[in-house]
């Protein structure tokens, strides 16, 4: 037999009117609010996807334009000219982490562009020092003093920022390597772990029948008979 909840006009009229009234007020308020266009997350084919081929240490060519970078000891200034206007980014050492792939260590820099987010870029480093090895390591600066060559220029743009990846990094406070903007949630993660543990304990406590009995319904009959 199927039972369905019945709507009783007498008792349910006032709560129904309250709920519908609240919805109308909220909907009108939201639709009239000047929210503007959504910033969104990086799309395929943005600068992060461009195929960059290096020619010089301080500059290179990108698809449909040129790429130049200057390092003054603490700040790297990256300029991208794609024919439709020059976009410049200023990076500090705090934005830079290191990543090793094969024999080459790359400086991984986060480049926020105007109006779009481009995730991570990798600039090969001439100095393969120990301090620069490993993801997440802090880099003082990119060494541009060596002779320019294929390995010292802008080698490749790494990847677009992944949403799932960023959430994972944000949960463990790994902001130096997260490709998209997000706050740190390490403390929240630990608190939620404790809360879930407490909830498990509380659920077992509430499901107990007596002081000594633990979950009799599991594995046995309701009255302790055979399963």
């Amino acid at each position: 037999m199927t039972t369905r909840p019945r709507l009783r006009l007498g008792r349910h009229l006032l709560p129904g009117l309250v709920a519908v009234g609240l919805f109308v007020v909220l909907a009108v308020g939201v639709l009239a609010a000047p929210l503007g266009a959504a910033a969104g997350f990086p799309a395929e084919g943005s600068l992060a996807e461009a195929n960059v081929t290096a020619e010089l240490a301080d500059g290179g060519s990108v698809d449909g334009g040129s790429y130049a970078s200057e390092f003054d000891g603490s700040t790297t200034r990256v300029t991208v000219d794609r024919g439709d206007g020059t976009v410049a980014h200023t990076l500090t050492a705090a934005d830079v982490a290191a990543e090793r792939e094969g024999d080459t260590t790359y400086a991984v820099v986060s480049v926020p562009a105007d109006g779009e987010r481009v995730g991570l870029e990798r600039i090969p480093m001439v100095d393969h020092g120990e301090a620069a090895a490993g993801p997440g390591a802090q880099v003082e600066g990119v060494d541009r003093s060596a002779e320019p060559g294929p390995e010292t220029g802008v080698h490749a743009v790494a990847r677009r920022g992944s949403i799932t990846e960023t959430i994972g990094y944000a949960m463990f406070d790994l902001r130096s390597v997260q490709p998209l903007p997000a706050e740190s949630f390490l403390v929240v993660l630990l608190l939620v772990a404790v809360v879930l543990d407490a909830a498990l304990e509380a659920a077992v406590y509430l499901a107990r029948r007596g002081d000594d009995e633990v979950l009799t319904a599991i594995g046995r009959g309701e009255e302790g008979g055979e399963p």
């Binding site: 997000a182 706050e183 949630f185 879930l196």
Partner: peptide, 22 residues
Amino acid sequence: FHHGNLTGQTFALFAMALAAAE
């Protein structure tokens, strides 16, 4: 999504965990 910042999505994940505890 509107602000292009993943804080909200991460927070929603934790809200789901709290809902499970609840």
